[in-house]
Simulated assay, not measured.
Amino acid sequence: MPKKEESREKPKKKKGFFSSTFFIILLFLITAAVVAINRYDRKHRDEIHVTVDKNLVKETVKDEEVQNKISIFVYDSDTKTISEREITVPRQINLIEGDFINGIIRNSNYITEDMKFRSAYNLRIDNVNTTVVKLNAAFANLKKNPELFNGFSQAVTNTILKNFPNIQSVIIQIDGETNNQ
């Protein structure tokens, strides 16, 4: 009798409990961690923990001490001339027209404390880039002295035109009145 060939197939190994459910256990642990973190965040959502780098604070203080130097024109009522001056203003990201006008007001000896700069804005009037400068009603008293008002107006105009090259005209308004320069 011929010998039967015995099939020698290897039986398949059954995977163990842990190896077959490893993926499910991993997903369960991740879900539990997410739920725990969510609950922790809900309990502590009103708290903000901030850590300040001491070196960063020192650099900020140094930057605040730096001043910007700007050039303005000021009318001198004694000599009746307009002269250019360099003044310092607190450091800012952008210098605007008001910084220059306030510098003129502070450096003009004929301006009283009640005279205040209100605002400045840029318009395009008849295809001309124009800055409109608004001053409070106290400047009406300055307008009574044409020499002083014209000197002040010319100082403002020269300052704006020099420091803002895209501006071609300046209008000064006091309580709705206009004065084209």
Rank of each mutant, 00 (worst) to 15 (best):
N38W: 11
K43E: 05
V35M: 07
V57C: 00
V50H: 14
V34I: 08
I48P: 06
N38S: 12
L56M: 14
V34N: 12
V34P: 07
D41W: 15
Y40S: 02
K43V: 03
V61P: 10
V50M: 15
E47R: 14
K43P: 05
L56Y: 14
V61H: 05
N38L: 12
V50G: 09
D53V: 03
D53H: 01
D46N: 12
K54N: 09
L56I: 11
D46E: 15
V61W: 06
H44Q: 04
A36P: 01
V61Q: 05
R39E: 13
R39Q: 14
R45G: 08
I37F: 05
D41E: 15
E59G: 01
L56N: 13
Y40H: 06
E47C: 05
D53Q: 01
R39W: 15
V50I: 13
R39M: 15
A36F: 06
R45M: 08
V34E: 11
V35Q: 06
H44S: 01
L56K: 15
T60R: 07
N38Q: 12
V50W: 15
V50N: 12
V52L: 11
K58C: 00
D46H: 12
K62D: 02
N55Y: 05
I48N: 07
E59I: 05
N38M: 11
K62C: 00
T51R: 14
V57R: 00
V35A: 13
H49Y: 12
I48E: 09
I37C: 06
H44M: 02
V61M: 05
R45P: 13
K58Y: 03
R45A: 07
K62E: 03
K43D: 02
K58W: 04
R45N: 14
D53G: 00
D63W: 13
D53F: 04
K54Y: 11
R42A: 12
R42M: 12
R45F: 08
D53S: 01
I48Y: 11
E47W: 10
K54T: 13
Y40V: 04
D63N: 11
V57N: 00
H49K: 07
E59Q: 05
V35N: 09
D53W: 04
I37M: 03
L56F: 08
E47K: 13
V50P: 10
H44K: 05
Y40L: 06
R42G: 15
T60Y: 15
N38C: 12
D41V: 11
Y40A: 01
V61G: 02
K62Q: 02
I37W: 01
K58G: 00
E59F: 02
V52T: 08
R42C: 09
Y40W: 10
V61F: 07
K43I: 04
I48S: 06
I48W: 07
E47M: 10
L56W: 12
N55W: 07
R42N: 11
V57D: 00
A36G: 07
Y40C: 03
N55R: 03
L56V: 13
V35R: 05
V61D: 04
L56D: 10
V35D: 09
K58S: 00
V61T: 05
E59V: 04
D46Y: 09
E59A: 01
K58L: 02
D63R: 10
D63V: 14
H44C: 00
E47L: 13
Y40D: 04
D63A: 15
R39N: 15
K43A: 01
T51A: 09
D46W: 09
D41K: 11
